[in-house]
Design a protein around this nucleic acid. Structure first.
Lengths: 211, 211
DNA sequence: GGGCTAATGAACTAACTGGTACGTTAGTTA
DNA sequence: TAACTAACGTACCAGTTAGTTCATTAGCCC
């Protein structure tokens, strides 16, 4: 009964959060159908019953996981301030933020893969995500416009294409590190090569805008 | 009994191949744990029993699928001849071949995703794959060396990094088209934008080598 | 054409899995 | 302090799933 003994108390919010945390890891690691409701429950201090109590079922739990993961990564992106930087430096900075994010949140990357494997059918139920993401591209678009105005960047480059370029590089490095490592014996996440890839991405993106 | 009626005859090789074809599609579409042995069998002209007869089990069937998929894509790559092209054109050509391949073989892309979701643990059992893949990079390395010699390309760019860059762009476009489409309302595989992305990749890669 | 074996099919099973019925308890409120 | 409800736990169920058993057949070899 005492808090000192670490025994259970009623705490709805903590129970919910603990389920979300463990479920994020399970879904990211094993995919939607591979994740086991029993396993998720076993890894928390609560029981399977609570998944149905708080979320309704496996699918709704997955949806909650997905929504929170996207919300977190976009919230962090919004905190970046690039207005005080020259266009080229700002562009590089934005690329680096994505680079750092992908590396720091492998579970998010895996969830993106899981969701694509299901043709993004769950994502359509989370309308909020669209707003979150388009704001990230709007930021990028501003930087490109600024660069065009001062002659740093060439015309005719679409912000969404640049976003795709940045994402693809960062995503691949994290998502496919296992097959890439197995086939070419190179660990894309080796800390010693981290700066090299970060610089490479920046060069690539600014280079593309200045051709 | 007659071949004209389309009735069943004994044909070990055809049975094996049919299982492989259907299994490729099932594993690509639903992932390893999501794929159902019964479903694979139901979609062929044979029965589940044959999966165990020819392959041993679900896992060995998956392994056979993976090995064949990689063998096919690398075999096609080896047929490309770039010796008669200038380094920049050769590099662009190699990028385009990968681009075309990824687009034409979405099942392969999905299998790569499935295998990464499992930390490439099956891939280690298919030693043959390493040889196949390193030959693709060797080809790229030759082109880069040639370009350096004639002053077209700058020094200090690693062939494997270029391969990664090309792969990441092509992979992302196919693998993440669903979430990307849902979030930004842009179909990365829209035929009307195909040439744009193909050119973009070529510009990107040759641009990176000439900075 | 009779024996032999690779190839095949139907039915079964043991274990698993998402979901639920139903009873219990902690903490709040009057 | 008694009533009340949100929060929780146990035990179970019905459907599913990978894998197996065992009998059967097609086609080849002599």
């Amino acid at each position: 009964m005492s808090a000192l003994t670490g025994e259970r108390r009623r705490d709805a919010e903590r129970t919910r959060l603990e389920l979300l945390d463990v479920a994020t890891d399970e879904f990211a690691e094993r995919g939607y159908s591979g994740a086991r409701v029993d396993e998720i429950a076993a890894r928390t201090r609560t029981t399977k019953r609570m998944i149905y109590y708080y979320f309704g079922g496996k699918e709704q739990l997955y949806l909650a996981v997905l929504e929170r993961a996207y919300a977190e990564i976009r919230a962090a992106e919004r905190t970046v301030d690039v207005d005080h930087l020259e266009p080229a430096a700002a562009l590089r900075r934005l690329a680096e933020v994505t680079f750092d994010h992908h590396e720091a949140h492998p579970a998010f990357i895996k969830l993106v893969g899981v969701e694509n494997a299901q043709h993004a059918k769950h994502m359509n139920h989370v309308a909020r995500l669209v707003d979150l993401n388009s704001s990230a591209v709007a930021l990028l678009d501003d930087v490109l416009k600024r660069g065009r105005r001062d002659g740093t960047f060439r015309d005719g480059v679409d912000a969404l294409d640049v976003h795709m370029l940045i994402s693809s590089f960062c995503f691949f490095r994290v998502a496919n590190r296992h097959t890439f490592g197995a086939l070419f014996d190179r660990d894309l996440l080796d800390p010693e090569r981290r700066e090299h890839y970060r610089t490479m991405l920046g060069d690539l993106v600014t280079g593309y805008l200045q051709i």
